[in-house]
């Protein structure tokens, strides 16, 4: 009898505790860039402002899922980094709000993000889509190096190409949308199907194929060039190709969450993250994306967007849920693994 009491009290005691304090100088940040870059930015910001930044790193898909689930009582103030599509979706669903900061110094593609999202998402970096191959493995197999998207359909590459599944990966969706914009929808699917004959695996994550190519698990990968540059600079034998037909690109986004508890601090972060001196330092943590501020310096290793044939990527159309749903359904029917 009195034992049930003890038991009850023991359980009670453990559940009695409480949520956190909200200091004025606090900022809750979810970061979808690489861990090192996240840590680096947070340290710089804390040094400069003396604010207490609580940061957690989540992939952009996970971050969006969390922002959605927390919509009625948000715990996050700013979402920094990660490919732009999920940021645009969040803006479309009213999960984020405009910050009103000055964006006149930014590149056109970064301003464009703000335009199509009513200022809710601002572009912070860009990265072009490309092809990478493992030079050692390519030589061992005696294969030609690919130069264009069209080369990837060559039967000699059978079982040597790896690319992500657009249903799970934003990278692969960018590739799908790029093909549609380059070749028109019907031909795009025909080409993707032909390349599909050579694909050994549709991975879940967008950066996985290039890592596999670096380690020699596959010969050729499709992905973002800045990821490939990073792998090559850490010692893997990767060669990077900008496809001759032209290629698409991603723009990394930054958004303030609707109902953020520390809105003023969040605006400070946004202004801070857009400054040229801050953006120029990203190369210190081996992030080779192209910064969005025109006055920021670009790392010499970064893929030079000026020399790559970039398509005029239509983020508004291909970021909308409707187009996305249609293209993915068609991809499942005609290209995807069944």
């Amino acid at each position: 009898m009195k034992h049930s009491l003890k038991l009850g009290i023991a359980v009670l005691g453990l559940f009695v505790a409480a949520p956190q304090v909200a200091f004025t100088q606090e900022l809750n940040l979810v970061c979808s860039a690489e861990q090192d870059w996240c840590d680096f930015m947070v340290n710089l910001f804390e040094e400069e402002t003396g604010a207490d930044v609580a940061m957690v790193r989540k992939s952009s898909g996970e971050a969006l899922a969390q922002v959605r689930a927390e919509a009625s009582n948000p715990k996050i103030d700013v979402w920094w980094g990660g490919t732009g599509d999920p940021h645009l979706v969040a803006a479309e669903e009213g999960l984020t709000q405009a910050s009103g900061v000055d964006i006149s110094e930014l590149q056109d593609w970064a301003q464009n993000m703000a335009t199509i999202s009513d200022g809710k998402t601002i572009g912070i970096y860009a990265g072009a889509l490309g092809i990478a191959y493992n030079s050692e493995l390519l030589a061992e197999k005696g294969l030609e190096a690919p130069k264009c998207w069209a080369d990837l359909a060559d039967p000699s590459y059978v079982g040597e190409i790896q690319v992500a599944n657009p249903n799970s990966s934003g990278t692969a969706y960018t590739e799908l949308a790029t093909f549609v914009q380059l070749f028109g929808e019907d031909e795009a699917f025909a080409r993707l199907k032909a390349i599909g004959e050579n694909v050994n695996q549709y991975t879940k994550s967008g950066s996985a194929p290039s890592k596999a190519a670096g380690r020699g698990e596959t010969t050729i990968s499709i992905g973002f060039m800045h990821d490939m540059v990073k792998l090559a600079s850490s010692g893997f034998p990767l060669e990077i190709v900008a496809p001759c037909e032209g290629t698409g690109y991603e723009v990394g986004g930054m958004s303030i969450i609707e109902g953020a508890r520390n809105f003023d601090m969040a605006v400070k972060w946004v202004e801070f993250a857009l400054r040229p001196d801050i953006q120029s330092r990203s190369v210190e943590v081996k992030s080779f994306q192209v910064p969005s501020n025109k006055n920021a310096s670009v790392a010499p290793e970064s893929p030079d967007l000026a020399s790559i044939k970039l398509i005029d990527y239509d983020f508004a159309t291909y970021g909308s849920s409707e187009t996305r749903g249609r293209l993915l359904a068609r991809w499942d029917d005609e290209v995807g693994p069944n």
């Binding site: 898909g61 899922a65 959605r68 249903n167 799970s168 969706y173 879940k204 849920s321």
Partner: peptide, 21 residues
């Protein structure tokens, strides 16, 4: 290690965090 062998647990994860949530 899944390769193209799809199982429920990973499919669920990507249904939540994937390109179409």
């Amino acid at each position: 290690l899944g390769g193209n062998y799809n199982v429920l647990s990973t499919d669920i994860y990507f249904a939540i965090v994937g390109a179409v949530a």
